[in-house]
Computed example of a mutant assay.
Amino acid sequence: MNTFKSLSCLALISVGIWGCSLQDLSEYRVEITAYDYAFQAPEELPAGWITFILNNEKAHEIHELSFARLPEEITYGEYLDEYVGAWEILLKEFQAGEVKRSGISARINELLPDWADGVKYVNARGLVSPGRSAEKTVYLEPGSYALDCWVKTEDGIIHLSNGMTRPITVTDESANSPEPSAENKITLKENEIDVQWNAETGFHSFAVLIEADSSGSPVHNNIHLIKTEENTDLNEVNTWMDWYKVGGLRAPAPADFLGGVSTYDATPDESATYFSLEIDEPGEYAWIVQVADGEQLWNTFNIP
């Protein structure tokens, strides 16, 4: 089993943290620098609303930030060996054709440890292409977390299996930061992306609200902005965004990703998810939500 020994060799220093003292009610900002394949990130953070800047300007592949809260009795090493290790085995078998798409659920349940249900991915994705930076604001409860990148290399290896993972402890101390007040709003409906904003170049912040289906569950859990070209196939982009495809989330990406978010803990019609990004040039763009093959959910637009 991969024990991620390469982590001990990484020089992960010089993390930028901005904001006033914890006595001031101000935004708490942390810059995470991505490399191929490592994160430069803090070991400890206060609890509350934290704005994470994913700086992907030094990397050559697309990356993401996923936050997994670990069960109290489980160590980061156990998470890597037993939980991530199970997904490594599943992915290897799936890519070799030994497990079919329909059999993924049963097989991963065989491989995962008994405590796997206690791992909570509170926020994920926010895909950022090489040379770009983007932000997302996440509410973190006290506890132990893993900061991961689940994108795959060209050879189909999960980035975190190559060392792109970090343990982070969220303390009982409060960041004393307010919930964001985004200038623009996106509402994800079953068959519509309702975006309320003026499409123009510049830095933009978004609050994402998700409607509920008939059972009360969120209709979707992700939204991304991409810059398109004349030959960009949005059906191909949608398929590529599916991690459970053999070629899904495997470098290189079929489009230029500017940022976005996936969420697993939002309450439909109530709580929002927040992200911000920079649109640095005119051109053709698309908001895209990853949905099942054969379905389409995107908005294309032009910035003159």
Rank of each mutant, 00 (worst) to 15 (best):
E270A: 12
L45A: 04
F94M: 11
D242G: 04
C9I: 01
H204R: 05
V122H: 00
S102D: 14
A96P: 06
R125E: 00
T3W: 05
N176A: 03
N123G: 07
N123A: 05
Y145P: 06
L249Y: 01
L140P: 13
K227T: 10
Y145G: 08
A175G: 15
C9K: 05
N55Y: 02
E192G: 02
P142M: 08
N238Y: 11
D24V: 13
K58C: 08
L70V: 00
S174W: 11
W197F: 10
L10H: 12
T300H: 02
S105F: 05
L127P: 02
D114H: 04
I104Y: 03
E154V: 06
E278W: 12
Q290E: 07
L140A: 02
R107H: 04
A34C: 12
Q23I: 08
D155P: 02
E270Q: 11
D148N: 05
V84S: 05
E173D: 12
F4R: 03
K227A: 15
L209A: 07
Y244I: 13
V208W: 10
A212H: 10
T273P: 06
S262K: 00
T169K: 14
F301M: 08
L10F: 12
E200S: 14
S214L: 12
G143S: 06
F52H: 01
S133P: 00
A86W: 02
I168M: 00
Q40F: 00
W87S: 09
I108R: 14
F275A: 00
R250W: 03
E57S: 06
E88V: 04
S205L: 14
D233Q: 09
E200D: 13
V119M: 04
I53W: 11
V246D: 12
W150L: 10
L188P: 15
D233C: 05
W197Y: 08
E57D: 07
S129R: 12
A146W: 00
L277K: 05
L111A: 13
T3Y: 11
N235L: 07
L12E: 11
H204A: 04
E61Y: 13
K136L: 01
T165G: 03
K5P: 09
I158D: 05
L80I: 04
Q95E: 05
L249M: 15
L209Y: 15
T171C: 07
N238I: 04
A207G: 15
E27S: 14
S214Q: 04
E192P: 13
L25Y: 11
I158H: 07
G247T: 01
I186H: 12
Y285G: 08
V151Q: 02
G77K: 14
T300E: 14
A146P: 00
I17L: 11
S14Q: 15
R29H: 11
T239A: 15
I17G: 03
N231F: 15
A124P: 01
E183S: 04
M164E: 07
D233W: 09
P178V: 01
E98Q: 13
S177W: 14
K92S: 15
L147I: 07
L90N: 06
L225R: 10
G202V: 11
Y35T: 04
